[in-house]
Design a protein around this nucleic acid. Structure first.
Lengths: 255, 255
DNA sequence: CGACGTGTTGAAGGAGCTCAATCTAAGTGG
DNA sequence: CCACTTAGATTGAGCTCCTTCAACACGTCG
């Protein structure tokens, strides 16, 4: 899997969306020590109960976080794309409370937690961007909770497809209405709290109603308006367009 | 509602669980500027779409966060008790992506976001504790997602009752098996992704099976072992007992 | 070619929902 | 102290969305 440019660039790109970073900040991010590893599809990156001492970030490919419940069911908690910091949580909290796994062949950079903590507090703008990132992550968790708890299958699926469109376009990895979705129906089911059989029927229904056109690995949204309506989708929770000026106030005061 | 001691003490108590704070750190936390407000049951504290410039923390009482979906359904996303920082999210992210509301009459302290950001970066141990707190918050979100997505009604309810026991005991507001739960069955339903009718039947079943004894506002868990088993409950995700030594490493290096 | 992972389809069952009625306790006003 | 009100708890009956079980189809890859 060839990779263009500095492996940490996708992360830097993302951090710069959350907070304005000057030249020195940017360089410091790129100077973080890291170890690059290639991960195969379905390989585990972090396992529940681990005590990771390195944070990891997705350089290329897709990954997901999940938990397995007592009855054997699996719940996918989050989906991640290149540039996402997939495991600051478990590293900072010392004990992994969930699993992280590659959804496709992927490239992952591991960074010592100590380095992450150091840069966060030596360079408050970087630290704030990281904090911000974890908060947005939590915001997405909340929307997923609402999605699974209070919407029916069709709305859940529509919502997921809309979210992915917005996120992939924002990450420069696709467009709002056309992107790669390398997930099996069983994986979709585990992300939505459904069974793969019902996911199959729901996807077929969206196709039949002219909202989407899919083939195995890619999604084409043919009617964004209606899909967003069906999915009760409002991208506000992704905080993509939020102004950052307000945050700078806090930093301007004393740092 | 009379209050003992400094209003910010419950928060300080909580932060100190996440990271070791020296005298000066502790004083700085208590010296944060704040405005105390009494909130009536059901009054809104933060409304979705707001642009709050003050973070808020629960000094006394219970509160919850929620979203309303397109079909009118409500999903409660998190429950909060005294000491919880109920709204760092919305304040830092600038645009509230969910509502925060009082579950009982409550006392809330509002702190300017700028002050929070300042203390976080001037005093890294405090900042780390706050970051840690938001990460634990996210961890609870994840467990809730798994709970709602992959467990049946009885397990969901059992899990919630167990979580509350642990959290309230940890906060010094009750004991593992006996505590106040000032929620209506409809509110429980909205927290669990169920209907109030089904919550009623589920609660009755737990009583009938000898796992709990309830009256209106308080819970008595008569068989913790079996309730935890029924709820597939493992408190690891609350990160209550995690060692903090590892984190200190990061700070010790350069700050 | 056979095997396996994934998608597709049908039929039956059930967990949880909807609708509707009744009950209870805690106000509230007189 | 008692009618009156009201929010919440409780219970029943029928229904539906989604699951479970069971085949079968399809493509890929050894």
């Amino acid at each position: 899997m060839p990779h263009m440019g500095h492996p940490l660039l996708p992360m830097l790109r993302k951090l710069m969306k959350w907070s304005k970073l000057d030249e020195a900040d940017q360089q410091a991010v790129l100077d973080l020590p890291y170890q690059l590893r290639t991960i195969r599809r379905y390989d585990s990156i972090v396992h529940e109960g681990d005590h990771p001492d390195r944070s990891c970030l997705l350089v290329e490919g897709y990954a997901y976080r999940h938990k397995v419940v007592g009855t054997g069911g699996r719940q996918i908690l989050a989906l991640h794309v290149a540039g996402d910091i997939v495991d600051l949580q478990n590293a900072l909290l010392r004990t992994a409370d969930h699993n992280v796994q590659a959804l496709t062949d992927a490239s992952v950079a591991f960074i010592p937690v100590a380095s992450v903590v150091n840069i966060a507090f030596e360079r408050p703008r970087v630290g704030l961007a990281m904090w911000y990132d974890t908060l947005v992550d939590a915001s997405i968790h909340r929307e997923w909770t609402a999605n699974i708890g209070r919407r029916n299958a069709k709305a859940r699926m529509s919502h997921l497809l809309c979210e992915f469109g917005v996120r992939l376009e924002d990450a420069g990895l696709g467009t709002l209405c056309r992107y790669e979705l390398p997930m099996t129906q069983e994986e979709l089911a585990d992300a939505l709290g459904l069974t793969s059989i019902h996911v199959n029927r729901t996807l077929k229904e969206l196709d039949r109603e002219g909202l989407t056109e899919r083939n195995k690995k890619s999604v084409f949204i043919t009617d964004w308006q209606r899909l967003a309506l069906a999915g009760d989708f409002d991208p506000a929770y992704l905080h993509i367009a939020d102004e950052q000026s307000g945050i700078a106030v806090g930093l301007g005061r004393s740092i």
